[in-house]
Design a protein around this nucleic acid. Structure first.
Lengths: 214, 214
DNA sequence: CTATAATTCGAACGTTCGTGCTATTATCTG
DNA sequence: CAGATAATAGCACGAACGTTCGAATTATAG
C-alpha cells in the first residue's frame, strides 16, 4: 500500500521527463518500464492501461502547475500583481519543474485536439480552467482600477494563452532562449494597453519593466 | 512516370486529411494504404520510408499554404493591406484547404520540437520563413508610414504567430468557432497600437496616458 | 512469526508497425 | 505492336506495441 505509491511516483517522474521531450504518443510502456527498472507488466499494473498512464501524467502535470505557478501567485495581492505573477511563473514553469522538453500540457493539447477520448477531455478541461483563472485575475485587476472598465477579460486571457504557446515553440523549436522575454514584453504591452487612468505609478513602473526586459 | 505522380498526389490528399486530424505520428502507412486503396508495399515505394512520407506531407502543406495564404496576399499592395491579407488568409487557410482537422504544420511543430531529425528541421525552417515573411511585411508597413518607426518587426511577427497558434487551439480543442475572430481582434489591436503618429512622441504619449507628469 | 495482501515478474498473446524482397501487372516509348 | 520501364501487389521479416495471466516475491498487519 505504501510501496506502491512510492514506485508509482518514481514512474511518473520518468514519465514526465519522457513525455516532455517526446510527447504523450511516444511515451511507451516498454521504454518507460526500462527506464524505471521495472518489468513491463509490473509497471502496467499501476495504471491499468496506456490511457490510464497518459491520464496520470496529465494529472501530475496539473498538480505541478498548481504548485509552481498558481499557488505562489496567490501570495500576491489580487489584481495586476497576481496576474503578473501568474504569467511570469507560467512562462518559467517548465524550467522550475525540471522538464527537459517543453510543456507537456501544450504538446498534449495540440496532439489530442482532434482525438476524442478521456485524454482530450482532461486536457481540454484543464486549459479551460486555466483560461478561467486568467480571466478572473484580469477582472480583479479591473475591479482594482488597474485595468480599464471596458477590458474584455476573456479576450485578454486568450491573448495571454497565445503568448505562452508562442513562447513554447520559440524556445523549443528555434532553441531561442529569449522566447520568454518576448512573451513578457508582449504581455506588458497588453497590460499597458488596457491600463486605466488612475494608479499612475503602477503604469509607469510597468512601462519601465517592459522596457528593461528588452 | 505520369501515373506515378497521379497516385502519389492522391495518396498525399488522403495523408493530409489523416495527418490533419490525427497528427504526423499517428499517420500510419497501413491505414493510409487502406484508405488509398493500395497495398502497403505499393504505397511504400512512393516515399521510400515513413520519414519520406512525413516530409512529403510537410512539403505539400507548404505548397498549399503558399497557394492559399501567401500568393493571394501578394496581390495586395505592400504594407498594411498585404500584412492584413496574410493574417486573414492564414487564419482561414485550414478551412479553405479543406483540412478536416487543424493545421498540420502547427501540430507537427509541437510534435517534433524536441525530436531531432529531418522532419523537425523542415518544420523549423518553414516556420522561420513564415516569421521572416511576417516581419518583412511589418517593415514594409513601417516604410509606408502605416506603422511607427520604432516598431519591433520581429517582436510583432512573434505575437502574430502566437495569435495563430492560440486560435488553432481554441478552434480545435474547444470547438470554438469564434477563435479566428478573437485572433483578428487581437491582431487589429496590435496594429492600432503600433499605428499612428510619429515615433519619437510615442513614449511620451504612453506616459501621458498613464498620467505621469514627468 | 505468520498469514494475508500488495507488488512485481516472466512469458506469451495477437496486432500493428516499418521495411525488404520478388513477382506481376500496367504504362509509356520507339 | 514490341520491348523497356515504371508501378503495384504479395508475402514475409523482425521488432515493438499494449495487454493478459498465473506464479513468485515482497511488504504489511495481526
Amino acid at each position: 500500500m505504501r510501496k506502491g505509491q512510492q514506485t508509482r511516483n518514481a514512474i511518473l517522474d520518468q514519465a514526465l521527463a519522457i513525455a516532455s521531450r517526446a510527447g504523450l504518443a511516444r511515451l511507451t510502456i516498454g521504454t518507460l518500464a526500462e527506464r524505471s527498472s521495472l518489468s513491463k507488466s509490473g509497471l502496467f499494473a499501476h495504471f491499468g492501461s496506456k490511457e490510464g498512464l497518459q491520464l496520470a501524467v496529465i494529472q501530475e502535470v496539473r498538480q505541478l502547475y498548481s504548485a509552481l505557478v498558481f499557488q505562489p501567485a496567490m501570495q500576491q495581492p489580487p489584481g495586476l500583481p497576481r496576474l503578473r505573477a501568474i504569467v511570469e511563473n507560467w512562462l518559467e514553469w517548465t524550467r522550475s519543474a525540471k522538464l527537459p522538453g517543453g510543456c507537456i500540457m501544450t504538446a498534449a493539447a495540440y496532439e489530442f485536439d482532434d482525438f476524442p477520448g478521456p485524454v482530450r477531455e482532461l486536457v481540454s478541461q484543464s486549459l479551460r480552467e486555466l483560461r478561467k483563472t486568467l480571466a478572473r485575475s484580469v477582472r480583479m485587476a479591473v475591479e482594482a482600477g488597474q485595468l480599464r472598465e471596458d477590458t474584455d477579460a476573456e479576450q485578454l486571457a486568450f491573448e495571454i494563452c497565445a503568448l505562452y504557446f508562442g513562447a513554447q515553440l520559440d524556445a523549443r523549436l528555434f532553441d531561442d532562449s529569449r522566447a520568454g522575454e518576448r512573451a513578457l514584453v508582449a504581455f506588458e504591452n497588453l497590460i499597458e494597453r488596457h491600463a486605466g487612468a488612475p494608479a499612475p505609478a503602477a503604469a509607469a513602473a510597468s512601462l519601465a519593466r517592459a522596457g528593461a526586459a528588452v
